[in-house]
Nucleic acid binder design. Structure first.
Lengths: 166, 166
DNA sequence: GGTTAAAATTTTAAGATTGAAATATTTTTG
DNA sequence: CAAAAATATTTCAATCTTAAAATTTTAACC
């Protein structure tokens, strides 16, 4: 009931679908690499920062109350140890604060400093402009189409969630 | 003449397009991260190798005559120094051969060994199955649609190629 | 209540990645 | 032809990244 494809719904078995999906994956990889590369370079040149740091700040910006380390790594889909190092550097730069969570001494809460919030606000605006420019040949409707197709279509593949009849 | 969007073609200026394209980028990033993570884990567990190594072998497999180091890094959209290290490990594993190009002693040619070709052939088949499984909820037509939209739409943004009327 | 299991984080070792500098070779050019 | 510019690659230091092991703290269980 999610897959609305009419006549194509049947052909999800043959070689053709396999090939198209592999082609799609290679295309996604190429586009991602290209855009990531551009953003990395621009963040470095314009703001003397890196994409991972930007991503971390972005996640923290949306969470005003702060995030646990594990929430942060889950949000970014990277490993725990990874986030530890990036946060270290952001703390050293005065952009992030780390504080214990009262009541559970295992947990570390991280949040943006006022300076971090301000700096991110600046960057985020310019960043959106960059992305829009890099994808300028894709109109709003096509963008929305792709988002929709890629949205629900992915989720149920990894850990075998419940409720999958068939 | 490439952009066939009828009525949307006009709205590539407003805030709406910006937002949709940013949303698209975040979605692309998420999907890529997810699939990359799955493939990495499976390559490690099933074949004791890594995604970068697989990518390098894939590029070399298609180029039977071998590739220059610079052609390889260009194909994968990564830095030169990066490829050097990955090739080193593949050579140590006996999967890749490095040889000088007669006539230009600056150039290093890299190509798969027979063992490398065989091993990649095995992996590639399984790999395609993984990708297709991970994207199984996307039918062939949708996959093709996305590929087409993402295809030409990207290229002309970076270095300002010649021949762009308009 | 003390032992064990679970959870959150950090540390560690290996690899991947970049950008810049260094090397080596070829091409250009005066 | 010699000096300079261009090209191809490697080396280097810094950062990012992962998976696994180690640490610390909390929860569970008998």
């Amino acid at each position: 009931m999610i897959n609305l494809a009419t006549d194509e719904a049947v052909e999800n078995h043959g070689d053709e679908g396999d090939k198209q999906r592999l082609r799609l994956w290679l295309r996604l990889l190429k586009v991602s690499r290209y855009i990531e590369g551009e953003l990395r370079e621009r963040l470095r040149k314009e703001y003397a920062t890196t994409l991972p740091r930007f991503d971390v700040m972005s996640a923290l910006y949306r969470a005003e109350k702060g995030l646990k380390m594990s929430e942060l790594s889950a949000a970014l889909m990277v490993s725990n140890g990874n986030v530890t190092g990036i946060i270290e550097r952001l703390v050293a730069e005065g952009l992030v604060l780390r504080e214990p969570l009262p009541g559970d001494r295992r947990v570390m809460l991280v949040l943006l400093t006022p300076e971090g919030r301000e700096k991110f606000r600046d960057m985020a605006l310019v960043h959106q402009g960059w992305v829009s420019e890099l994808l300028k040949n894709i109109n709003a409707r096509d963008a929305a189409t792709i988002c929709d197709i890629l949205d629900v279509k992915l989720v149920r593949t990894s850990a075998g969630r419940e409720g999958e009849k068939e």
